[in-house]
Structures are given as structure tokens and as C-alpha cells.
């Protein structure tokens, strides 16, 4: 049975106010089309998570959809600190997001534990740091330091995470949701598989036969997936290997806009509320910056050698 639908349908059916949402990506393949749709539908009180968050999480925070953020890091990369993130935490604009802070080792491991169905996982980081002196909505359950039962050394345990819904953007998927990626993965595989439901946004929908030609690339199997949305250019201004480059011009535009509350609101009015979907967004991009600029982002093709799975 096909799970193909529009992003509007997917977000409205499967992301609810108050949900705990994993959003994958690491500049590579952020599911930006889904992020804009979440903002457009004015979801509220979400708990969001990912290791190494960037402009997409900054935007969700600025748009007021986030109550809690299980975080490790948020910045705009070459464009410096996340403006909405800072305004939220320093000035309570639009409101103060509650943070539970981990690291780029512990958080991916917590998602891995969630995916593996185990209750917690020992990690070797955070010890000796002030990250152990702060906790927020997890309270006492942020971590436990125990004596390693096998050798008596201090062992830090962190809890498994099982988000209500995981959203990832991938290069290709079939209509049932078998999702394939190549290139930098970040925490997509463990994050999606830790989630109770998975929304797969993809550059292209391919046949089950195509998936079967290279099944080692599949990171989420169809039975974990509730929705498949074809969204070409869906990770912009992030990138998708083999499809398009990161858009530094647009990153700079977002940074300048988000410097002020008014500028941020104008950005949302133009690029999120002012368009119905990713197709209109892409049209607006081309109208505003020209086809040459759009074309310039498109990847050259430099194919891998095909591999054979035959016997």
C-alpha cells in the first residue's frame, strides 16, 4: 500500500501538538520542507531533538513551535551563533525554550539505545564537566553515574530516547518507505529507527526494484514508515549529495534576517507562510534569484561504479 502523500497531509496527520520529534540531518539532508510545513501549520509545544542543530532548529525555535529541545549544539556555522536560539534563551523571545543538554556522542548513543530497544546506554563522555551539574525537564533522570559492575570504575548511563515521530530527508525511497541515503549520515539512521513513526521526505520516489538493486543503502525499512513525501530541493538551503550543494547565499540571507525579530518574521512571511508548499518555495527562489543561481546549486554527476549483489 502506497504511503505517498503531500507534506501538508503528512505533518497534519502524524505530527501533533506536544509531540516529541526527531529531525535528522547534518547540513547534509535537513528535512527543510517538513520544517517549514510544521511552522506553517503552527504546531505547538513540540519537543525536538538532533545532534548538531543549525538554521532549521533556530527557525523552529524562533517560530515558537518548540517547548523543549534535547540538544547538543546549535549554531549557524560560518554565520555564527543562532540568533533565534539566543533570543529565546537570553530574552525569552518568543518564549524561553527548555533545554536538556548532551553531546554529539551521548545524544546519538541515546537514540541508538532507543532504536535497539534497550533502556539506557553507558557513555564515556560528559564526566567531569558542568553538563552533569545542569538538568532541566529530565530532572534526576538526565543521567546516572554508577559503579561499573564489572570493574568498579565510574560509569555514566544516559537514557534511551524514543521520539513520537522521526522526520528525515533522504535521496530516494520507494512508495512504501524503504529509504536510501548516501553521504554524511549524522544521526539519521538511529534517530529514525528510534522513533515510533517515521516520515520520509525524499528527493525522488523510485520503484521497489531500484531499491533492491542496492539494498545496503537503505537506512529505514518500510514497516517503520508512515508517510513518504517526494520533495525535490527539500533540504535547501542544506544539501543532498548528488543533487545540490549547500546554499551559502541563502544561509547569509537567513542570518541577516534573523538578526532582528522583525527581519525573522519577514523571512517567515516570505519563505514559509507566503508559499503553500516546497514547489512554490522553489518557484519563488528561482523568480527571486534567477534560474542561473538555482542551476548553479545543482550537483554535477560523478557516478559511483555500480556494484553487483548477484551470486
Amino acid at each position: 500500500m502506497s504511503k505517498v502523500m503531500t507534506m501538508r497531509e503528512a505533518i497534519s496527520q502524524f505530527v501533533h501538538d506536544g509531540d516529541f520529534v526527531f529531525i535528522g540531518g547534518y547540513i547534509c539532508r535537513p528535512p527543510f520542507a517538513a520544517i517549514h510545513e510544521i511552522i506553517r501549520q503552527k504546531k505547538r509545544n513540540l519537543t525536538i531533538t538532533r545532534s548538531n542543530a543549525a538554521d532549521d532548529f533556530d527557525m523552529l525555535i524562533g517560530a515558537g513551535v518548540v517547548k523543549r529541545f534535547i540538544s547538543t549544539f546549535l549554531s549557524l556555522g560560518v554565520y555564527g551563533l543562532g540568533r533565534c536560539f539566543r533570543r529565546s534563551l537570553e530574552k525569552g523571545i518568543p518564549h524561553k525554550v527548555e533545554l536538556e543538554e548532551y553531546t554529539n556522542l551521548s545524544l546519538p548513543m541515546m537514540l541508538m539505545a532507543g532504536a535497539l530497544g534497550i533502556p539506557f546506554v553507558p557513555v564515556k563522555d560528559m564526566l567531569g564537566s558542568d553538563l552533569l551539574k545542569i538538568s532541566s525537564f529530565f530532572g534526576e533522570k538526565k543521567y546516572k553515574v554508577i559503579e561499573n559492575p564489572f570493574d568498579g570504575t565510574p560509569a555514566l548511563l544516559v537514557p534511551a530516547l524514543n521520539p513520537d515521530v522521526g522526520i528525515i530527508h533522504v535521496q530516494q525511497a520507494d512508495e512504501n518507505g524503504n529509504a536510501q541515503v548516501w553521504g554524511i549520515e549524522g544521526d539519521c539512521k538511529w534517530g529514525a529507527n528510534a522513533s515510533k513513526k517515521v516520515i520520509v521526505s525524499c528527493e525522488r520516489i523510485v520503484s521497489r526494484e531500484i531499491i533492491g538493486k542496492d539494498p545496503s543503502r537503505t537506512i529505514v525499512p518500510d514497516f517503520r514508515v508512515v508517510a513518504v513525501v517526494q520533495e525535490p530541493f527539500g533540504a535547501h538551503p542544506g544539501y543532498a549529495p548528488g543533487f545540490y550543494d549547500v546554499d551559502l547565499m541563502f544561509g547569509s540571507l537567513y542570518q541577516r534576517a534573523s538578526n532582528t525579530v522583525e527581519g525573522f518574521q519577514e523571512f517567515l512571511d516570505e519563505w514559509v507562510f507566503g508559499v503553500q508548499d516546497r514547489t512554490e518555495y522553489t518557484q519563488r527562489y528561482i523568480e527571486k534569484f534567477g534560474y542561473a543561481q538555482f542551476k548553479n546549486l545543482m550537483a554535477e554527476f560523478d557516478y559511483s561504479y555500480p556494484v553487483s549483489y548477484s551470486y
Binding site: 548538531n52 549544539f73 546549535l74 536560539f85 554529539n104 551521548s106 563522555d125 564526566l127
Partner: peptide, 15 residues
């Protein structure tokens, strides 16, 4: 002033 957070720095520094 709120800064980005640990990211990978804490585990890199420790390990």
C-alpha cells in the same frame, strides 16, 4: 551570552 553548546567538543576533549 548563550553559546552553541558542546556539540562534539566534550567527547573529543575527554577521549
Amino acid at each position: 551570552s548563550r553559546l552553541p553548546g558542546s556539540g562534539g567538543a566534550n567527547p573529543i576533549g575527554l577521549l
